[in-house]
Computed example of a mutant assay.
Amino acid sequence: MKRLSEKEEAVMRAVWKLDKAFAKEVREEMPEPKPHINTIATMMKRLVDKGFLKFEDFGATYRYYAALTKKEYTTLYIRPFLSKLFGGSIKDVVAFFAEEEEISVEELKEVIKMIEDKEK
Rank of each mutant, 00 (worst) to 15 (best):
K45W: 13
M44G: 00
P33G: 07
V93R: 03
K54F: 04
I112S: 13
M30S: 10
L76F: 06
E116G: 03
K7Y: 10
V15Q: 01
N38Q: 15
F96D: 00
M114G: 10
M114I: 11
L108G: 10
S89K: 12
G59L: 01
G59P: 00
E116R: 09
K70H: 07
Y62K: 15
F55M: 01
F58Q: 04
V93G: 00
Y64W: 05
L76W: 10
S5L: 12
Y62M: 12
E101M: 13
E107H: 02
D117Y: 06
L76N: 09
I103K: 02
I115G: 12
K71T: 10
I90A: 05
K17C: 15
Y77A: 05
S104N: 02
A95Q: 04
L53D: 00
E28S: 12
G59F: 04
Y64E: 03
I78R: 12
Y77I: 02
L47Y: 00
D19V: 13
R63S: 09
N38K: 07
E106D: 10
E56M: 07
L76G: 03
I103E: 09
E29A: 11
K7W: 14
A67S: 11
A66S: 14
K109E: 13
L68I: 05
V93N: 08
L18H: 08
T74L: 11
E101D: 11
A23H: 01
K17M: 15
D92V: 10
S83M: 08
I115Q: 12
A67N: 02
